[in-house]
Write a protein that binds this DNA or RNA. Structure first.
Lengths: 164, 164
DNA sequence: GTTGTCTTGTCAATATTTCAACTATCCCGA
DNA sequence: TCGGGATAGTTGAAATATTGACAAGACAAC
């Protein structure tokens, strides 16, 4: 059994395994660093992402489900995150006129001020710990690689859905 | 204040932002896919990583702190994870002879059987959702990129610490 | 219009993770 | 050999995340 199943398995080559592990570890370290820098603003990375996405939407508002897709989180998780952000006064829940089931999340003025304060620091962190460590070619390759991964896993996903 | 801070900030270029977001999203989708495939074996990705690292150590055992570094998790987290794995009979806690403070985690026979059953499926998942979607060059670039990130964030980290 | 089905979002229960003590051991110098 | 400071690992409570069940509106078929 323990050896029998190994037949026919395409294990990773040494290089592939090295790459995979470098990625897993690098990603974790990077996340830790980004969280650390956001800590000064009293928010986590997922929370920042939510606020940031919201701040780019028309009218600073978006449906819960749209938000969930944008930040790649479950709806339930977005509900919880929104509740926390609402408790801090950064976000407000509003009914949607067009669909009685829906709920829109809207950035409050305080929320906007907070994202705008956090954004420069966060961007600097992304630069210092990621973008600026890489060449333009490397950045482009990372883009392509993960866009492919996403396209494979979520066939319907649009490549540029940060805009709407 | 809200505009004042924007001066002097090196925002991301459009391409950089696209890359960053593609990476964030792709990573999350990838994690979801890997977790889904591991689910059949009753373990999560962090748990698999722990078992997998353990299975590569001499004597199927390693100190808690070594393990924590290998999988890039806090010690406390490793303690909790180990407790769960121990409850399933996959792992056993042992005192270390050389250092009275230390605790070694050892894979049980049942634990080894379980990793060996999960490994082919997991590897296939990593292939299908990541490695095989990329060219060899892309894989190499991802390796370099995240190794650089890790080297920046954890200057002391060894590149090949999956072996010992 | 009534029925059945799908979608939205929430909720409560459960599981996991984090954080800040805390214990025990080791190491080193006076 | 004592003491202080480091290191190893654990603990429990609080914060966060996931899951599955649910309520309610939409929507299509008839």
């Amino acid at each position: 059994m323990s050896t029998g199943e190994s037949e026919g398995v395409r294990w990773l080559s040494h290089g592939e395994q090295q790459a995979w592990r470098a990625y897993l570890r690098g990603h974790r370290e990077l996340e830790v660093a980004l969280e650390r820098d956001l800590d000064a603003f009293g928010m986590s990375l997922p929370e920042y992402e939510l606020l940031s996405m919201l701040s780019e939407q028309d009218g600073d508002r978006a449906r819960m489900s749209v938000l969930a897709d944008l930040v790649v989180q479950s709806r339930s998780r977005v509900t919880h995150t929104a509740k926390r952000l609402e408790a801090r006064g950064w976000v407000r829940r509003e009914p949607t006129p067009e669909d009685g089931r829906g709920v829109a999340l809207a950035l409050t003025p305080a929320g906007r001020r907070t994202v705008e304060a956090a954004a420069p620091v966060h961007v600097q962190s992304v630069r210092a710990n990621f973008v600026d460590l890489l060449t333009a070619d490397q950045v482009a390759t990372v883009h392509d690689a993960f866009a492919q991964v996403r396209a494979h896993l979520v066939p319907g996903a649009r490549a540029d859905d940060e805009i709407h």
